[in-house]
């Protein structure tokens, strides 16, 4: 080891950060996409339940009611998760340079998060499909920013 190398080693070592507020590389729209698809699936299952004939057995009716509540809960949770994940991308990942390249980004995020709220309030397959498409557009923009 050279003298300079030896002297350098005598210095105390401090941390210096080369990353974002949280460790980098973990942003991913996949969670939002999965959540949006789960919302659609729940809407479809709720609709199926609603169109099935009434059952004479009281236990079957109770099971249906239990399933209905669970489906609504899952729809609610995943619409909220979708909103949260999209907002994380918006506030923590996307930067000015991305906005310059995709000037509709703010509007797209705003409309997508509104769709999350719509899907919490409603049982509407068209709205759920719209949410999936909107999140896919955000995911596509995300992928383009990685190139």
């Amino acid at each position: 080891m050279s003298l300079a190398g030896f002297l350098i080693k005598l210095l105390p070592v401090k941390p210096v950060f080369a990353h974002c507020d949280i460790p980098c590389g973990i942003y991913d729209p996949h969670t939002a996409q999965l959540a949006a698809k789960t919302v659609l699936k729940m809407v479809q299952k709720i609709n199926e339940l609603d169109s099935s004939p009434a059952k004479p057995d009281q236990n079957d009716n109770l099971t249906d009611r239990n399933n209905f509540v669970r489906m609504v809960m899952v729809k609610e949770e995943h619409a909220e998760l979708c909103k949260k994940e999209v907002l994380i991308l918006w506030t923590d990942y996307f930067k000015d340079e991305h906005l310059k390249k995709f000037p509709n980004l703010h509007d797209l995020i705003w409309k997508t998060t509104k769709l999350c709220s719509d899907n919490k309030r409603m049982i509407d397959e068209a709205k759920a499909q719209e949410l999936i498409e909107a999140v896919d557009v955000i995911a596509d923009i995300f992928e383009q920013t990685k190139k």
Binding site: L11, K14, A18, C20
Partner: peptide, 18 residues
């Protein structure tokens, strides 16, 4: 005049690795 640092994170890749 001199400080020694250890790098944490990926933002200076490929010049500095974590």
């Amino acid at each position: 005049p001199f400080s020694r640092y250890k790098v944490y994170g990926n933002s200076m890749l490929p010049v500095f690795k974590p």
